[in-house]
Write a protein that binds this DNA or RNA. Structure first.
Lengths: 330, 330
DNA sequence: CAAATTATATCAAACGTTTGCGAAACTATT
DNA sequence: AATAGTTTCGCAAACGTTTGATATAATTTG
């Protein structure tokens, strides 16, 4: 069975295609009686406008592209969720692709986006350093780009991200408020700029506001490593009384080790992390965290995208602020 | 800056549009020298074929639609992840929409898919009962549909799902093997067919293979409820020694309560669940689980989709088998 | 009642491709 | 040198819309 088209409707009704087209969109030129007939037939024949023809003609796809490192990720999927909600409201459809942190995939995805003439793309850089030429070319072609989370330094782009430094600073503040004396602070892959930012912020705050507190800095790019770290550090004579985790992944490793060692939270050690909240709420007591909401970021990104699409350029970097969420772990 | 088109290339090269088109796709009619020139110019002018024009002309969108209840979900996002991987390999793009379990959203998403003339759709029914007319109509229009996870009874459709009954049976088997005597079995929303299936399978197995074992059946549609259940049941004189959780959500509630009550796993109680593995691995000891892999399901769904697109109808219901994954909790 | 206005509907071009068919321009064959 | 066969390319229609310009009929106006 072939799809219903304007032409088909027109033939059935002995009208011209343009009349049918206008009737369906309530154009004032068309008589009410005609409109009624057209609508009725369209309904009964299950007419659905061909998006491709429309897009070809109008040069407006109403499709937005999203590139994330991975869909299967607590942070990014809440980002996507938010963007999808907004898109629906604004009558845009979404095309989602994952880069798996491979620049090669990222490029390929962008190509698909361009070939589909997306109206804009939300991009999260894959972690490895790369050149931004593609993005510049897309800018030249006037395809709006909103970078999120992992954003380039280049300030010719529109960017939204979490207030990474603030997160770490807030966490440090809380640690001090709760009387942490010997802190183990675990950060992620030191190659990532986000790790550097958070570590610097944490360190800066600690050094200036609480110079007498003893802080051990460590890296762990996986839960496994984070767990081992706890095991190792906890057997030392100089034990920590507080542990700060930079990410959910680290927290997971830490918590496993803490459960294995049967350490009591918060009596024996306090725990604080940066997270969107899902993982911290899996434990008893709930882990205290500084919230970084992918959802909020998504909403913000969408606003920026709309501004970009409508009003031309908005080359700014916006951050969504962090806030502390109380738990029972500190 | 306007996009490069075949016409533009043709003008520059003093060739016809059709020649340029054929040159770019290595058509044997075109001289090698011409091809070289065309390719060179296309390259330097960043020519990207317009997907809409192609799709309009060829009537083949190479886009697949996916409807999930929620993207932000451990199970579905691994499903999506798998489908996306395969799609990329087969040169399809993905359009992902979430229904939020609202039939209304589901219908709206389907409309968008139809208007975009998707080559096929992966659909997971929103939980509330609804009529399948839309899907039948799409079938008539020869849009392949592969239902996954929550599938309709109607066997005119292609379906893939987890072996729900098997999961529960395997879990029951293991509980008996590990000498559970007093089992607390917690199932999800009793309105959902998946809950019924799993409960029936569990119950049937228990009654026939281990009639002397005492099983308490309970429902909990949220982690919270599950947690309360544990608190209530554990204060009784007749305590349980094993708890079976039907889903991750239930497990989360259960584990929180267990941690709060400071119950030792597996010494005081054994725990087993049905899961894709992420949550069970968050704890120490790791929770034993019967694996339901969204990833595997995605792979299977894609195979079915390809079969459907190429070879016409494949009206079968396939299931991906469950397997037990060892942990330290039983 | 002729002229001007309004209401309604049609024409035709354009968006960027793909593709069957035909047209030159060569080359090879007798 | 005429014919047949190849190689290389162009013409033009079609995919399903949208939209400015235009045409026709109906209505109003002075």
């Amino acid at each position: 069975m072939t799809n219903t088209t304007l032409k088909l409707l027109a033939q059935q009704l002995q009208l011209s295609i343009s009349t049918v087209s206008r009737a369906l969109k309530d154009h004032p030129d068309i008589a009410a009686s005609t409109k009624a007939k057209v609508h009725a037939l369209a309904q009964s024949m299950d007419y659905e406008p061909n998006a491709y023809a429309i897009q070809l003609r109008t040069q407006n796809s109403r499709i937005l592209g999203v590139i994330v490192p991975a869909i299967s990720n607590l942070f990014y999927d809440s980002f996507i969720s938010a963007v999808e909600e907004e898109s629906r409201k604004h009558n845009y459809a979404l095309m989602i692709m994952q880069s798996s942190n491979q620049p090669e995939n990222e490029l390929n995805n962008l190509k698909i986006f361009r070939q589909n003439r997306v109206s804009g793309v939300f991009a999260c850089l894959s972690s490895h350093p790369q050149n931004l030429e593609v993005y510049h070319k897309m800018n030249e072609r006037e395809i709006p780009i909103v970078f999120f989370d992992i954003v380039p330094k280049d300030n010719r782009f529109t960017k939204v991200r979490m207030a990474d430094e603030r997160c770490a600073t807030i966490a440090a503040e809380k640690v001090i408020q709760r009387n942490g004396k010997k802190v183990l602070a675990i950060f992620g892959d030191p190659g990532l700029s986000i790790s550097q930012k958070r570590k610097n912020a944490f360190q800066t705050f600690m050094e200036s506001y609480a110079p007498k507190i003893h802080v051990t800095y460590a890296n762990a790019s996986s839960s496994l490593e984070a767990g081992e770290l706890i095991h190792k550090q906890y057997s030392k004579t100089q034990k920590f009384d507080t542990v700060f985790c930079m990410t959910d992944e680290i927290l997971i490793g830490v918590m496993k080790a803490i459960q294995a060692l049967n350490i009591k939270i918060p009596n024996e050690v306090g725990v604080i992390t940066i997270s969107n909240g899902f993982i911290p709420n899996l434990y008893y007591p709930k882990i205290c965290y500084v919230e970084t909401s992918g959802y909020e970021l998504g909403k913000l990104a969408f606003v920026q995208m709309m501004a970009n699409i409508k009003g031309g350029k908005t080359q700014t970097e916006l951050t969504v602020d962090a806030k502390f969420v109380e738990g029972g772990s500190l």
